[in-house]
């Protein structure tokens, strides 16, 4: 880990208006738009008595993470590889891994900021209760961030160019959004579908966030699914990653 590399990458992230918008602002903006629809503020039996806007806060939290991990990070990293930036840096005493670690910190950190923003706006604008099991929520969120970064690393590892990274990223992005509940929150999914989605990284993440938001400790099953995905994806990224 090199603090100089991290500081530089944070500064560079600040110069990307696209990244700032899509990771930090867009998920909360979506929450605000949905929350502005009157029917989304009425309790709904298909959401287990929650208001749809309540169910969309965890979705917004996961959305920032998916955009940051699966779309933005692979674009940046494959771009660095394409431009020979990784190569140039590997002729210096700094470990080339420092650049990868820095990116994970930047995108993971941005996703966490985005999550906090969604929680704050949900609370202040729509009266969505803050997670009742705070520690459990933090644990579930952290596990979700790690899985998103690991998934992004696999996309990076498999993509030779930024174009390919864009294509693979999108192919992973839409299913991930679906599983996170962007179109239909997991609470409202039919049981069989919800069960299947619970085995995907972001489906499990959504379930874990929902449980902790409601005041329970995250279930071992969901944390276990996240842990297995993390281990598999990290192993895949390590196996397939190329510096050049």
């Amino acid at each position: 880990m090199s603090t100089a590399v991290l500081r530089t990458e944070i500064r560079l992230f600040g110069r990307e208006p696209g990244g700032i918008f899509w990771i930090l602002l867009f998920p909360t903006l979506l929450l605000v738009i949905l929350g502005s629809i009157p029917s989304f503020r009425q309790p709904d039996p298909s959401f287990g008595g929650l208001r749809p806007v309540d169910a969309y806060v965890p979705v917004a939290v996961l959305l920032g993470l998916i955009v940051g991990g699966v779309q933005s990070m692979p674009q940046t990293l494959t771009g660095y590889r394409e431009r020979g930036i990784l190569r140039r840096m590997s002729t210096t005493p700094v470990r080339p891994g420092a650049l990868l670690t820095a990116h994970m910190c930047v995108y993971g950190g941005a996703a966490l900021c985005s999550a906090l923003l969604a929680l704050a706006v949900g609370r202040l604008a729509f009266g969505v209760a803050l997670p009742r099991q705070g520690a459990g929520y933090a644990l579930a969120l952290l596990a979700s961030v790690l899985v998103a970064l690991a998934l992004g690393s696999v996309v990076t590892a498999l993509s030779r160019t930024t174009k390919i990274a864009g294509a693979i990223g999108s192919a992973v992005f839409f299913p991930s959004m679906f599983c996170a509940g962007v179109w239909l929150p997991v609470q409202a999914m039919p049981d069989a579908l919800a069960r299947g989605v619970g085995y995907t990284p972001f489906g499990a993440a959504a379930e874990a966030l929902n449980r902790t938001a409601a005041g329970h400790w995250p279930g071992w099953a969901h944390l276990g699914v996240l842990a297995v995905w993390f281990v598999l994806l990290t192993a895949g990224a390590r196996r397939w990653f190329r510096w050049e």
Binding site: T8, L12, R15, E16, Y80, R83, G84, I85, R87, R88
Partner: peptide
């Protein structure tokens, strides 16, 4: 052939 981060 190598470059730096374009916005650096």
């Amino acid at each position: 052939q190598s470059q730096l981060q374009p916005k650096l």
